[in-house]
């Protein structure tokens, strides 16, 4: 029932314009139900483009892209996107932002209200219902961004460097929050990041990307035991993964 399977088959993306830019080249990627996959790579390697294709914000130039076996043609609430800068509606307060999805989909108030309240509690913002986004810190805004997506019960979460703009300490608490939420929901997650630690800590599998054109050059399964917490960051296995990925990424850079 829940599903959330993702299949990229030989997907390429070229941006046309004054000069053509080959953003993605021959992407093959299959993500199973409930899997947490991190896309890791330097900025400009096309990892956000890959996520935008899956979100339906952009169209692939070649290849096929399936979500739950169906070709992706447009954005939809089955794929909840968490943006880097949260992209909350600045004129709506926290509560209105969180219920925006169910509301525009025509869900009856009774059917989303208690769920939305519960989500605000989970992300620790129950007392900030009436606050406007501008009155919140970056971390709090991103909590709202996560809550509003979860309010739609998506089959997959697409997260585009969601914690990239946060300070180190806030980032850790957000990573912990995401681990906890994912542990209880088991939703498929595609997580774009340039932070090696973050990728190892969160994911079941890391796809390392190279730049221009963006390709997946390495896939590394992460078998750290679950449930994980930010305490895992200091384990010896974690450090071993990190050493290996760092050398992998250097190889990628030399070829670029």
């Amino acid at each position: 029932m829940t599903m959330g399977t993702i299949t990229f088959e030989n997907v390429s993306k070229t941006f046309s314009g004054q000069s053509e830019v080959r953003a993605l080249e021959g992407i093959d990627l299959a993500i199973g139900e409930g899997e947490f996959v991190a896309l890791l790579g330097p900025s400009g390697c096309g990892k956000s483009t890959l996520l935008n294709l899956l979100a339906g914000f952009e169209r692939a130039t070649e290849g096929s892209l399936l979500f739950d076996g169906k070709t992706v043609t447009r954005p939809g609430p089955d794929r909840g996107v968490v943006f880097q800068e949260a992209a909350l509606f600045p004129w709506l307060n926290v509560w209105q932002n969180v219920i925006f999805g169910p509301q525009v989909q025509g869900v009856a108030r009774v059917d989303y209200e208690s769920k939305a309240r519960n989500l605000l509690k989970i992300v620790g913002l129950e007392s900030f219902s009436d606050a406007l986004p501008v009155q919140l810190s970056g971390g709090m805004r991103q909590r709202v961004g996560i809550a509003r997506v979860l309010a739609m019960s998506p089959k997959a979460l697409l997260m585009d460097e969601p914690f990239g703009a946060l300070d180190a300490q806030t980032r850790l608490s957000m990573q912990q929050l995401l681990l906890d939420v994912w542990q209880s929901l088991g939703t498929t997650v595609l997580f774009v990041t340039h932070d090696i630690d973050e990728a190892i800590l969160l994911s079941d599998r890391i796809c390392v990307m190279s730049a221009r054109p963006g390709r997946i050059i390495r896939t590394i399964p992460i078998t750290l035991p679950r449930p994980r917490s930010i305490a895992s960051l200091t384990s010896t296995e974690f450090v071993a993964y990190k050493a290996r990925i760092m050398s992998d990424m250097k190889v990628g850079a030399a070829h670029a």
Partner: peptide, 14 residues
């Protein structure tokens, strides 16, 4: 802002 429109589309707004 482009992402505001994208966010709305992602949440199912017509």
């Amino acid at each position: 802002e482009r992402n505001l429109v994208r966010a709305a589309m992602m949440m199912g707004a017509g």
